[in-house]
Design a protein around this nucleic acid. Structure first.
Lengths: 354, 354
DNA sequence: TTGTAGGCGTTATCAT
DNA sequence: ATGATAACGCCTACAA
């Protein structure tokens, strides 16, 4: 029994249409009418019924964000950024979580909610080339990160190849030569392929021949997988003086495993990642990483999607924009010497006693 | 121009009602009819229009989860658990994010979406006692964690007092005597009050007089705040041999700050938190923490809410359930001696060379 | 087991 | 500047 527009109209002594106008920013209205409606709304504690509005308008003001899981800092932070970017445009974000399952990615695109949402921002992890047709005819769509579907939807891209190249160059610059590439073994996503390619390019430029043994496979891009892969590498007797995790979670997992085994970071092994999640800043040592400009990505994605929604017919040809990136050098790749000299903190002291 | 039920009916040669029955699991239908409808749905790629259904039914199958931010591991993980718990009940979760702002918490409860959602799971951080009236008359509601609104809605509680008591007892058991209580200074939330009370109780039982100076104020329950507060404490010359962060983020921030200053954890200062976020497991050293059974909390909250939604009139009196908890002892509170003996890893070895 | 009619609350059209 | 009225797509009686 919540109040309806009809109730408000009755109370304010106007027609339903006028109340509707009130809520839709229709400019031609007497100040007095406006005030009366405002009062009635207040008294009845009225709220527009979104379902009815959506039904009538044929659009809901709701977009979904399709990511594998919120347990990963990267996706959680991305979700927050997207929500924040969508709000000013009057868009509500429905976060859909897929557990890296192809079925669930497809379902998020064309399941029950397809009728509910106006469009989607999608970070595909499980879909492959075969699914392109499904993608194409689903709904207004912006794809983030993965570029294998370019031409089928708008994209916000990360310059995967350059990003990886820069990280590896940085590791080479600080004198490392045997770099474990976490995620480069039998890469599943296109992203992995590109980061691997960029890494190889950097090595080649430095005149180094890549050692295939250092291209390590991982079973997930999370900390567990990073730790496990690193453990395996160590136990197989592989020798390396740096780790490049294809994302922060992998790098942090590696770093954790190294430290657990008493291997010094960056003393014995330097570590770097990609994503600049908050976790990187609070690791110990703090983790060198590549910032992909997540806020920018979110903003671009939302804007692109909003445009695609309001322009019903695509003007043929989809847009791809690439986000800026920036290397964030932290302690995990600083030599102890430079570490000490760069440290702006008060002299280290034992404190806190027992 | 998406297909409607009418289209499907026409195509299948049945009435709209029969198609509706098909989608609502109405059992009495000839197998052949069912098959024909299924085929028509397939061919037309039909999906039920959720807005129309919601309008007609007066309910949407959507619930919201109201949390301050997804950037905090605790809330991100909670959101994932809630989404997972809601799915089997056919409920879709709309995550609403409030940035710890009172206005936005109120808005999430009674703003535009009040008409869209059937109920809400709410982790209140900014609302105070004055807002009780607003809460009471909003919508089916389950409150998580905070207990100041008991009697106004269903609650899933954390045994804050006992949780804190157990943590402090643990720190006392391992021989620590001066425990910095991060979050105990001028506590804002009821949760903080209770955790402080539990901590004091543990100290009292051990015959210790609490030192007010160790009750430290924080400006947020995140890692930054934890690090800052710890830095302040150290710089003020305060001496302590343990830190109890009222949540993992505070504890991790503290641990980070300690390590940055070359203070050994747990050698010089032991550290413990509450929440058992993934971050605790991957800290170095791994963080001792109290697991509040997040999966259980999520499940209870969703079930309670589902019940409250289906039972329109509250049978007077709201339910409060308390989640189980469990102390997870990790390296941040293990003495180096026990550490070595408990370690089930292969002997530490330098590896990874240069 | 299936069909018909009407209305859920809103907005668009067309008047006035 | 405001009002009357007809959809939007679905579900619930009620009928058959």
């Amino acid at each position: 029994m919540p109040a309806t527009m009809r109730d408000v109209a009755a109370r304010a002594g106007v027609s339903v249409k006028t109340v509707s106008n009130f809520f839709n920013g229709y400019p031609y209205m007497r100040e007095e009418t406006r005030a009366r409606i405002g009062a009635a709304v207040e008294e009845l504690d009225y709220r527009v019924n979104v379902s009815a509005r959506s039904l009538r308008r044929g659009s809901s003001g709701m977009i979904s964000l399709i990511v594998p899981e919120l347990d990963q800092a990267y996706f959680a932070e991305l979700a927050q950024e997207v929500i924040d970017a969508a709000a000013p445009l009057g868009l509500t974000v429905l976060v859909e979580t897929t557990s890296y399952l192809r079925e669930r990615e497809l379902d998020a695109l064309s399941g029950v909610h397809r009728q509910l949402i106006d469009g989607a921002i999608f970070d595909p992890l499980a879909l492959g080339p075969d699914d392109a047709p499904d993608l194409a005819r689903s709904l207004p769509l912006v794809i983030i990160g993965e570029r294998q579907f370019e031409g089928l939807a708008d994209h916000v891209l990360i310059a995967d190849e350059e990003v990886a190249r820069r990280v590896v160059e940085h590791l080479l610059e600080i004198g490392r030569r045997r770099i474990l590439l976490l995620g480069a073994g039998s890469p599943g996503t296109h992203t992995a392929v590109l980061r691997r390619r960029g890494s190889v390019a950097a090595l080649a430029r430095a005149g180094l021949t890549p050692d295939e043994a250092l291209f390590v496979e991982v079973d997930g891009w999370n900390r567990d997988a990073g730790a496990r892969a690193t453990a395996r590498a160590l136990e197989s007797g592989l020798r390396f003086d740096a780790v490049f995790g294809f994302n922060d979670a992998l790098a942090l997992g590696a770093q954790w495993e190294l430290l657990e085994r008493g291997i010094a970071v960056p003393g014995d092994v330097a570590v770097a990642g990609v994503d600049d999640t908050r976790d990187a800043r609070f690791a110990h040592p703090t983790l060198t990483t590549m910032s992909p400009g997540r806020a920018q990505i979110a903003r671009l994605a939302v804007e692109l999607l909003a445009r695609r929604i309001s322009e019903p017919t695509a003007p043929d040809g989809f847009v791809s924009v690439t986000a800026d990136f920036e290397l964030i050098v932290r302690d995990s790749t600083r030599s102890p010497a430079s570490l000490a000299s760069l440290d702006r903190r008060p002299p280290r002291q034992k404190d806190g006693l027992r």
